[in-house]
């Protein structure tokens, strides 16, 4: 597979380490009332879709960027690659 790195262009997927669903960016608030349940769902439950899947890849043998890759789990077609940092900010993460 080839991941079209937003900064570096096409790079072989073997240079990357895979983590999983991009929802791992959405780490719950540790002080929320339902934190225990929220963390359980965050850590363990997955949509595991057939089709489009947003997922986290780390460019380990490259520039050390975490990327959010939108990839079809049936065809492996990649439709979008973003810097995870940008995605995280867009999803309201800060410090």
């Amino acid at each position: 597979m080839i991941i079209n790195h937003p900064l570096l262009g096409p790079r072989d997927a073997s240079e990357f380490a895979y983590l999983g669903d991009a929802s791992l960016i959405d780490r719950p608030d540790w002080q929320a009332e339902n934190a225990a349940e929220a963390f359980y769902e965050y850590a363990y439950l997955r949509d595991n879709p057939v089709g489009e899947h947003r997922e986290l890849w780390f460019h380990e043998a490259g520039d050390r960027s975490w990327l959010v890759v939108t990839r079809n789990t049936m065809t492996h077609e990649i439709s979008k690659v973003e810097l995870a940092r940008d995605v995280a900010r867009a999803r309201g993460r800060s410090k």
């Binding site: 983590l19 975490w66 940092r85 995605v87 900010r89 993460r93 410090k95």
Partner: peptide
């Protein structure tokens, strides 16, 4: 190292 980069880029992007 990978984990720390994950936390830095994905969880705390404004640190």
């Amino acid at each position: 190292y990978r984990h720390m980069e994950f936390v830095r880029q994905c969880l705390c992007p404004d640190m």
